[in-house]
Design a protein around this nucleic acid. Structure first.
Lengths: 277, 277
DNA sequence: AAACACGGTTCCATATAATGAAACTACGGT
DNA sequence: ACCGTAGTTTCATTATATGGAACCGTGTTT
């Protein structure tokens, strides 16, 4: 984690992460126990974040949770900095044609970050699932993305995997994972062989630019009751097409007119430019 | 906007907001033009944010956009600090029974923040996703929420409305809005009469605690081609039930055991507690 | 009831980090 | 080679964050 180090802002964001990691509202003292910062400092950081709407304080429960301002900000992030908006129509199409759960993921801090998803039955596009993170070493999308990282990045990422044994099939160490990554790289796709949840399997492909830079990954998930690894493997050509199309669009992805000085209609850019005593 | 004022962190978050508001990647100089901060200061703020993953820098385009770390953080915020997780099953049920677009919203800085959504079975393409914000004075959920704010809060919120005339039906000023809010408060529900988009109408209800504290709002949206205001009005009883159920659940909403000292299994809380020279 | 412990909040002298004017560098154009 | 624009670094100054300790309010123990 490249975190702490950039002054006060870094510390504040640390605290924010820490609170988010709890996954539930936390009391100040709980935070303090787990924090490297002294009481008064932590207190002020939390105050500032709360005041800024990055944290929400529940007076009843006397506890802090990530605030709604994050949801607002994240929408912008999701719409601009993830593959989701580009990939959307392709995911829809893919989802319609395979009828199974489809995931779109990117790599973030050596972890899998799901940025979009299609359920077998119902299409829902937002971060009820998008925004969720998962382990890289035991998911289809995770392994595939690791496989297509360049060597230094891959090593760095491997070093950060926890290798928690979720199932009997979970890879146990960096060595076996490394071996599989080689295979994945050669094949161009990979599987999750019940490594994360028993009975759940998936096939995944990387989304690569023409220059082989890793953008993300795509997967179709199912259960052993419904299909098999070789069944999923039949989807590879379709997935490969989809991935390629997404990659192509992602490269073309230009945002409207950075030249024209934005004399459009409604409020787009922020006002600001006032004094700030 | 309660923003600027809390030191460096406040400024950094200002900048983040500003960038998010652009809605597209921005160059440093564009930012500078719209920023109250001097070059060097802004530069360092942006650097810090980028280094922290709150911003993403695209070297090709030489521009900044909100970063993926926000998506991760927002997932936690969405799951913990919005009505969405509580309301989910009720929205599903409502959506299934009315077959029209359903929105769940909360109020954030006098604006509407959509926190969840169900698409119509025959979807109409329009705005909105979770995390998206919208105006309060010309949407069903917005007006309904304003109506059930207590007086000082309502006045504060009214003062922040822009009254941009989206359509011929958009309310033009605080006076006419205030008049309608009184009616809405009396009726217990409100409409959007093509005030935001031509042809689009909706009926909305507040979600209130037993103590009449405003939690959020719920709406069903449709088009004039498919139904009418009186058609939508027929849904009010169903919506009222749904809103009440959500409110009830939201109040019961207790998070697991703030008492037990968390000696559970996997990695939940953050590590930290290391030195930070 | 007094003493205590605990979570939370405020103080204040000090250390540290942020500031911003100006100087500098890297490009792209001419 | 020259200029202009966009982005980056420097450095003395100033403002801000820091954190040990004291303080407050509330619930608990003796």
């Amino acid at each position: 984690m490249a975190a702490t180090g950039d002054g006060t802002v870094g510390k504040a964001l640390d605290v924010l992460d820490q609170i988010a990691a709890f996954g539930r509202p936390v009391r100040f003292s709980e935070l303090l126990d787990a924090s490297p910062y002294p009481k008064a400092t932590l207190y002020r950081l939390v105050q500032t974040l709360t005041h800024q709407g990055m944290l929400a304080f529940d007076p009843d429960r006397q506890s802090y949770a990530p605030g709604v301002r994050l949801v607002r900000l994240a929408h912008a992030a999701w719409a601009q900095s993830t593959l989701a908006p580009v990939a959307r129509p392709y995911l829809d199409r893919l989802s319609a044609s395979v009828g199974e759960t489809v995931h779109l993921a990117q790599l973030d801090h050596a972890q899998v970050l799901y940025v979009d998803k299609r359920n077998a039955t119902r299409p829902i596009e937002m971060f009820s699932q998008a925004g969720k993170i998962g382990p890289a070493y035991c998911t289809g999308v995770g392994k595939v993305m690791l496989a297509f990282l360049d060597d230094p990045a891959q090593e760095a990422a491997l070093a950060q995997q926890s290798f928690h044994p979720f199932t009997a099939h979970t890879l146990r160490d960096a060595a076996s994972l490394r071996a599989e990554l080689v295979q994945i790289r050669a094949a161009g796709y990979g599987f999750d062989r019940e490594e994360h949840e028993p009975g759940i399997i998936c096939v995944a492909l990387p989304i690569l630019t023409t220059g082989d830079r890793l953008l993300g990954a795509l997967s179709v998930t199912s259960t052993l009751r419904r299909t098999s690894l070789s069944g999923l493997e039949l989807l590879v050509p379709l997935l490969r097409d989809t991935a390629r199309q997404i990659a192509r669009d992602a490269q073309d992805w230009r945002f409207p007119d950075t030249g024209i000085p934005d004399t459009s209609g409604a409020a787009t850019a922020a006002p600001l430019k006032e004094k700030f005593a």
